Amino acid sequence: MDRLLYQRNLSDHTIRSYGTDIDEFHAFLEREGLSVGTFKYPDARNYLSSLYDKGLKRATVSRKISTLRSYYHFLIEAGVVENHPFLSLPFPKKEKALPTFLYENEINALFESLDQGSRMYLRDKAVLELLYATGIRASELITLRRDRIDFNYMILKVHGKGNKERIVPFNESAKASLLEYIEHFKKHIDHNDALWLNYRLEPLTVRGLRHALDMMVKRSAENFDLHPHKLRHSFATHLLNNGADIRAVQELLGHESLQTTQKYTHISKEQLRKTYLRTHPGNQKR
């Protein structure tokens, strides 16, 4: 766990997932009367089958296998074991599920449905504006500090995965909402040394953010699940649908691989229809 934290700079959430996966693996070893040293490749295949028997998604199974590969690399380096039973074990093929996103009219309806009488209306509006304007992750939003917001140039300095920093621009609408929120809650923001506040005027957590988004949807007439990543998906999809360069979107999202960004190149049926009507020669008047 120390190596994951200090050498690989993984997030607390990822490290907890590693710990859970390793604990589950050791429970399997105990049930089977095995140890990390006696565990061999055939046992690894049995373990893979046991994960599928639980009905886990392929992405979850892949993560657990990846965890145990890293674990055995560590054990070999430490001289605890000699063989790596997971090295030749194939990863499950990835499920090709497209990211879900909101259409522009759904985004507009969400903003319009915000309860202006709510104590946290200004916060909710600023949160929505910033998530949709920048596509930043929930963890990046929660850890954002005022001194990392440049209102003159309208850019954020964001600490992303692996403690990597990137610059993300935001728009006039997000700027206005942020300034209004900060001005109204300035005393409590200063007292907590945290930009985002919960209903008790204490620092907002990622869990609290998800709850706030759930409440926004419940107060609206829209029928969909809303989580920070759906706004991130919407941000990327709308940029690409409107002609943004995919490498620019990759940079804005903080993706290391272009392949990760390419999943957002799916387009809405309406966008597809518009493109067809605009570009197909047969649609031109003769």
Rank of each mutant, 00 (worst) to 15 (best):
K230S: 03
S118I: 03
K157V: 12
F86G: 12
S118P: 07
E180D: 07
H73L: 09
A109R: 14
L252Q: 04
K269R: 09
M154K: 06
T14C: 09
H238L: 15
L204S: 06
H280R: 00
A133H: 01
P281E: 01
Y18I: 02
D245K: 07
L75W: 01
S62I: 01
N163D: 11
L258M: 15
K57N: 12
E129R: 01
N163Q: 11
L179G: 09
K269Y: 04
R16D: 11
H255Y: 09
E172C: 05
H280W: 00
Q262I: 14
L272D: 04
K263T: 15
D43S: 14
S49M: 13
A248T: 05
S113F: 10
V127Y: 04
S177Q: 02
G135K: 05
G162V: 03
L51G: 13
R232G: 08
L102V: 05
N152T: 11
T38W: 01
H255L: 10
N46H: 12
T261Q: 13
G33Y: 03
Y199H: 12
E256T: 15
L204G: 06
S257T: 12
H73K: 10
R45I: 00
L277Q: 04
T275F: 01
A236E: 03
F91M: 15
D115N: 14
P85I: 00
F86H: 12
H255N: 12
E165S: 14
Y121T: 06
L122F: 09
R146T: 04
I142L: 05
A97V: 11
F185T: 02
V127G: 07
I182P: 05
N171W: 00
G117H: 13
I155L: 06
Y41D: 10
Y71E: 06
I149N: 00
K164M: 10
E30V: 03
V80Q: 13
K93Y: 00
L4M: 04
S88P: 13
Q7H: 05
Y264K: 12
Y103K: 13
